[in-house]
Amino acid sequence: MFLSWLCGLQHDLNLRQTSYVTRIEWIKADARNTNMKIDVRWYYRSEESIGGHRQFHGSKEVFLSYHFDVQSADTVEARCTVHSSKSYTKLNAIENDDFFYRFEYNSFTGAFNPDRVAMFIAVPWGWCVL
């Protein structure tokens, strides 16, 4: 079963072209509710990972990392949805704010979990799994 988390697109102070994708883990406020902070878990895009973009990475694929951070709630630009790869393939229409993930990513070591992907190729007698 896929759990739906609150995810957000966050801007960068360096005025990066694309927004960061985060999973919001916790929302906190001070006593007056004026200084909202969020605990986030970062998703990485393939071009941000060690090893870079590979042929089998999807254009809307992100990797859930072990990188946690505290950010100002003001950095959230919009809400987005990060689907499992299975639920993403079942979408009738893919919107700009739809992403999917198959891997967890360790940004310190560059390791992925799982570290392998089943690949299906068409052969004259049917399909073959590599």
Rank of each mutant, 00 (worst) to 15 (best):
F2A: 13
L6I: 14
C7I: 05
Q10F: 07
Q10I: 13
H11E: 14
D12S: 13
L15H: 05
Y20V: 00
V21I: 15
T22I: 10
I24S: 11
E25C: 11
W26V: 10
W26F: 12
A29G: 11
D30K: 01
T34H: 06
N35I: 02
N35A: 07
M36Y: 05
M36P: 12
V40T: 10
W42R: 05
E47R: 03
E48W: 13
G51S: 06
H53A: 03
R54I: 10
G58E: 05
G58N: 06
E61M: 02
L64K: 02
L64E: 12
Y66K: 05
F68V: 10
D69S: 12
Q71I: 09
S72P: 04
A73S: 11
V76M: 14
V76A: 07
V76L: 15
E77S: 09
E77I: 12
R79M: 09
C80M: 09
C80N: 06
V82K: 00
S85L: 02
S85G: 01
K86W: 02
Y88S: 01
T89E: 11
N92I: 00
N92C: 00
A93S: 12
A93K: 14
E95L: 01
E95R: 00
E95Q: 01
N96Q: 15
D97N: 10
D97E: 13
F99H: 05
F103S: 06
F103W: 08
Y105N: 02
N106S: 05
S107R: 05
S107T: 05
G110N: 02
A111G: 00
A111L: 04
P114D: 13
R116H: 12
A118L: 10
M119I: 05
F120C: 05
W125E: 13
G126Y: 07
V129Y: 08
V129M: 15
